[in-house]
Design a protein around this nucleic acid. Sequence first.
DNA 1: AATCAAATTGTAATCGATTACATATTTGAA
DNA 2: TTCAAATATGTAATCGATTACAATTTGATT
Lengths: 328, 328
Amino acid sequence: MANIQQIAKRAGVSIATVSRVLNNATSVSPKTRSKVEDAIKELNYEPSMLGRNLRNSESRLLLVLLPNISNPFYTEIINGIQDTAIASGYHILLCETDSKPERENIYFNMVKNKLADGVISMDPTVNMQKLNELAEHYPVILCSEYEENGEIPYITVDSELAAYQAVKHLIKLGNEKVALITSDEKFLYARLRRTGYERALKEYNLPIREEWIYHTKGLDFHYGVHAMRMLLQNEDRPTAVFAISDTLAIGALKTINMELKDSEPIAVVGFDNISFSSMTNPTLTTISQPMYMMGCQATEMLLSRIKGENVENIVLEHELIIRESTME
Amino acid sequence: MANIQQIAKRAGVSIATVSRVLNNATSVSPKTRSKVEDAIKELNYEPSMLGRNLRNSESRLLLVLLPNISNPFYTEIINGIQDTAIASGYHILLCETDSKPERENIYFNMVKNKLADGVISMDPTVNMQKLNELAEHYPVILCSEYEENGEIPYITVDSELAAYQAVKHLIKLGNEKVALITSDEKFLYARLRRTGYERALKEYNLPIREEWIYHTKGLDFHYGVHAMRMLLQNEDRPTAVFAISDTLAIGALKTINMELKDSEPIAVVGFDNISFSSMTNPTLTTISQPMYMMGCQATEMLLSRIKGENVENIVLEHELIIRESTME
DNA sequence: AATCAAATTGTAATCGATTACATATTTGAA
DNA sequence: TTCAAATATGTAATCGATTACAATTTGATT
């Protein structure tokens, strides 16, 4: 791989002139310009990002932190992030932490070292203390999961309200025994969705029964399968379930299909409107978040921060999508 | 962010000594070492990857190219890649090309510019010509999709054989009318799976009927839904379907569920064994690829290439997983 | 032809690290 | 005490770009 020196020599000019052609900045005579351009083509030259970034302290690369890519929830958000980034001349790198905080370090260092210009974190398992430290000096945005009263700008939806509406929908269908499948309450979204669940129950004077609330250890399908099995072991079985994630809801649906073949079905509502949710049988009623939009706006926020501007937190509108799982 | 100069000044030593402490290489007296370590802690210093990479021509970062992360097929492979990379002191960056070749350029440049040490491409839509050029000078491995008789080392499964076995399974169940849902045949895996499909039909003296072969424009569920609708419009309907991807198979299953409520079901076999395939109703018979293993070995191949070693192509074993979709 | 401003090009410092080589210091055997 | 060997540290070049400033060329004007 040729470097700027070799181009300069080949074109018979100084490296400064080559650099000028590269950045088509100040005046370069047409003759020299074309000599340099020829040399660049002949040697198949690409400027080194390393040299350039070192000098400019800018990489035009954005990091996107996510726990793992197996949850389809992230897919559409990432599309939004990517499209917006590219439209502004940036590129993104997806960083999967696998919920292992030690893996975050390398990515945080990339930002500190100007290998990346900023971070969008969608990782609920992120080490918030470290992220806060990073955010003191570098551009960081939280997307979806956030910190209440924290310093880092965020974009999200109103999880409490959405959960409230989901459960209210179940109650209005005549369900007085609504179970909750949720994850670890160290995550804000889990706490908020539980609060919404409880608010709906209270509003209709229904009891909150701990045995109808199941906490999973993760969001993969099989946790939902298992959660529903446990819930069905109650003597007094729930007639409906609200799951804080579509993946869990789909697992629950699977258990219901398997264990309750011909009996009265149990109504299910999920959260996220992942693409699978319209492929299940029955199709899944769920809360739809504007995921693409969320990705776009998160990126705009980050780009603003990179420019040094301040940004406001954003709470986007959600929508209850009613499908077969609450219709039979 | 402090730099090495400031550490040197603070510790009252030269930058060379600081660098020595950092790389705990040649001799540094215990006294100086601890002075430097103190300074590093006090100033919260992290060495710049930019400076270091520029000097060392090494980043210990690997790029993973994929068309998009929405196909869960990639998830497990990436886990394998990531675990193996980390075990060897490397980190990975996921690069989603969205099947837009212009997006590849930035990633290829990262390699040329030593911002990354190598590439694992899982992108069937990649510009092979450019990738071949890159591979002439930099470490590149193909994973899953590959080029027959190409120069780039690859790891994959025997798609032709797997498809043959899948279709044979359907035929043995008594299906004489087996349809194929496949994608664009510009992809090698699509061509190979079609060949396997045809081999099985021929072996049982069944006709290959073009109207039972549907080409989709992508792999998302809805393409499968649509493909199955089209296939059902045949006067002479197929009694079984082999889809070259689980996502397509699941879409097909959806259409079958919707349109053929009570009539004789159509048997379906997919390909990939994505986690959702055991959540559908009926659960999906499919070909399982050793995805985690594939990721691990792809990474080992790449690390060997980075060390300058030669590697052999690898064809891993697959397995037919029989589930409900071929049992009723 | 002489003059001078504008346009073009070159020189050299800089970004933050690593490392060959040079120099200084310590150690220990004679 | 002396001096060579071993150990410790510093100096300066280097990686590949950008850019302030200096130097040169151009060409219009008198």
